[in-house]
């Protein structure tokens, strides 16, 4: 083989394994699910492909509430993650001494060593009606005498926020950490107060991290079902819970597949709008 041919081959060798993996485990199942979503039938007699687009409109009509709830919970959790995560990431990137920085990053990653189901189950223990937290909340008047935390919207959103916080903090930290400190100095040299320097320099340069962190939080949060299942009741059920039960318990595969595609489409459109809102030019430029 000539040197030139071998050089042409290199890119394919590099992306080949990834492409193959995605083809086998993502593209083919996705196409299959698209196919399934257009079938009709029932679990007893089996399903036939019938171009059943009606499944989509029915799914939207029937589960509108869960869709909106998923988006609402995921958006709330994403904002909470940003509000909680940004100061922490900022401190870690700009103020913390090296040992402190390593400690914080370790603590942020540490929960990954425990399965998220297990962690969410522990939240049940923390939030349960006779627990310490509920008792204190009642003492402080934050909860009524028969008020509870478990099986409420608050518990589900708190659980999602907790579970996805690292996905917000890490990209934020990375984008903040690579901001040249001298740019902030230059801003203060040019008559910007600390707050103004933050608004006009640090924040715009942290946008790629905010973007990445929000996506990494919002997208999986939209499809999450563990938190709603373990910390909520059917009244807090999200679209993930519906899809899961359609697939595993009701075995209504077409509706489950259709719901998945509706969610996916919504997320893709949402991401595109979000990117435009933050300004893609700024994103690509400041990433350089």
């Amino acid at each position: 083989m000539s040197l030139r041919r071998r050089r042409q081959l290199v890119p394919w060798l590099l992306i080949g394994p990834g492409l193959l993996w995605l083809a086998v485990f993502f593209a083919i199942p996705l196409a299959n699910q698209l196919y399934v979503s257009l079938q009709t039938g029932d679990p007893e007699t089996g399903y036939q492909f019938t171009w059943a687009f009606g499944t989509y409109t029915d799914a939207i009509a029937d589960y509108q509430e869960q869709f909106l709830r998923s988006i609402g919970y995921a958006a709330t959790a994403t904002i909470l993650c940003l509000v909680i995560g940004f100061p922490l990431a900022y401190y870690t990137a700009f103020k913390a001494r090296p040992w402190m920085r390593n400690l914080i990053l370790l603590l942020v990653i540490l929960p990954f060593f425990v399965s998220s189901v297990l962690r969410t189950v522990s939240w049940q223990l923390i939030l349960f009606d006779d627990g310490w937290i509920v008792a204190r909340f009642r003492d402080l008047g934050l909860l009524g005498d028969d008020g509870r935390l478990l099986a409420t919207r608050t518990a589900v959103i708190a659980g999602i926020t907790y579970n996805f916080l690292p996905f917000m903090i890490l990209p934020l930290y990375v984008s903040l950490e690579r901001i040249d400190r001298r740019l902030v100095e230059a801003a203060t040299d040019l008559y910007a107060s600390r707050a103004s320097a933050f608004r006009h320099v640090t924040l715009p340069l942290a946008l790629p991290g905010i973007f990445a962190g929000s996506l990494l939080t919002f997208i999986p949060a939209c499809g999450d079902f563990i938190n709603a299942a373990l910390l909520g009741t059917p009244r807090q059920s999200m679209i993930g819970n519906v899809i899961q039960s359609k697939f595993l318990f009701v075995q209504d595969y077409p509706t489950a597949a259709a719901l998945s595609f509706i969610l996916m489409t919504f997320i893709l459109v949402g991401v595109a709008l979000y990117a435009r809102l933050l300004g893609t030019k700024t994103l690509t430029d400041s990433a350089v």
């Binding site: 040249d180 100095e185 230059a186 801003a187 203060t188 910007a192």
Partner: peptide, 16 residues
């Protein structure tokens, strides 16, 4: 930001 001097930084520190 309350001093009327301005600096040209070694690495320029232009806002990217």
């Amino acid at each position: 930001f309350r001093r009327d001097v301005n600096t040209v930084f070694q690495s320029y520190a232009l806002f990217p």
